[in-house]
Design a protein around this nucleic acid. Structure first.
Lengths: 190, 190
DNA sequence: ACGGTATCCAACCAACCAGTTGGATGTCAA
DNA sequence: TTGACATCCAACTGGTTGGTTGGATACCGT
């Protein structure tokens, strides 16, 4: 089998395992088994468990930064709604972001400059839409909008404490989405 | 030495270790060493690593639920500001909440009913302050307010991507606090 | 003095786990 | 046919780690 197919299978299995257990709780044997590949191939292709984790996390970071577009003039409230939907649909991604936040310290992962640039592009689009100069304040607003969108999925147990089982229903999620959109509209005066 | 003192030393050491590394990455030997206690005492007093983690997490959850009061008539924007300050001052707590969110599934930890009651009390106070009935919508607002307050501390790497090194300065933190307070005031129409 | 209790310890153990080794098999060009 | 290369594997290794064992010491009441 072509080596690219084996690597992809390992990456997919690693993503599932790291999303569920983080790097310390994940098991290399389980990753290999889920991929249907010998675990020596993990070391052959990626070098170490840590390097495999790095690659999975970098892929996830790049994916989330590009997940929902934000163009000049786009409605920031709708952006938050879409991002909320995206994270609901991709809980593995949300969890990987949390493991990433907890695991790394000050080191920047590969591709950080592109992610910064992509983020700044969104902040600039947001500023244009608000009729404001792109500034630190719009960067803070961008961070806040992302936080609003991700929080309910990032903290499912807190969500359940606050809202009970409705968090697991379609109506409950629609209500949360509506709440977020309304909250952002009011905050940004639109 | 009284056994309560030994237990407290172990709990404090465990909190530091679990906050830094989570349950899978934490090491029982390190906890014991940091506490200046034999590691057999961990099993004597707590039973297992998992049970020690449970206790540390429950303590943290109870602490954060009571961290900042929210009484009827209190300014929700100021509540967010104070909660933001609290999490800045207690990053270990924020990290523990994240490990908790990632580690547990559907099981409720000890004291869940009290935490739900405490949360509902705050949501009721919020509703009173907004001149609204306590409802699902105010529970969602409560969850959103907490998310706003905790997000910057919970995601330091994303914050740094968005804002660079200013996240580590006093001015930067003050600016973030001001931003959050302003955002919430606008959102809630006050 | 002695036995019971409280509190603790150093050394140990068995299982686990990341990573390595010493190959195998298939393909292809010379 | 053969050697080089690509891709992979089962078994192994050495270190780690959660948890246990077989005690020790101090104190106190009888």
């Amino acid at each position: 089998m072509p080596k690219e197919a084996t690597k992809d299978a390992l990456l997919a299995a690693a993503r599932t395992e790291f999303a569920a257990y983080g790097i310390a709780g994940a098991r290399v044997d389980r990753i290999a088994e889920r991929a249907g590949v010998n675990k020596e191939r993990i070391y052959g292709y990626f070098g170490s468990k840590e390097k495999l984790f790095d690659q999975v996390v970098v892929t996830a970071l790049n994916e989330v930064v590009e997940a929902v577009a934000m163009m000049p003039g786009d409605d920031p409230a709708e952006y938050v709604g879409k991002l909320y939907d995206f994270h609901l649909a991709h809980p593995d991604l949300t969890r990987l972001l949390m493991w990433e936040s907890l695991h790394y310290r000050d080191d920047d992962l590969q591709g950080q400059e592109q992610r910064v640039a992509s983020w700044n592009g969104k902040a600039t689009s947001l500023a244009a839409g608000l009729g404001a100069e792109s500034s630190r304040e719009t960067a803070r607003t961008m961070l806040t909008l992302v936080g609003l969108a991700v929080w309910p999925t990032a903290m499912p147990r807190l969500s359940r404490l606050a809202l009970g089982e409705e968090t697991a229903t379609e109506e409950g999620r629609a209500a949360m989405r509506e709440h977020l959109v309304t909250f952002v509209r009011a905050a940004l005066g639109r």
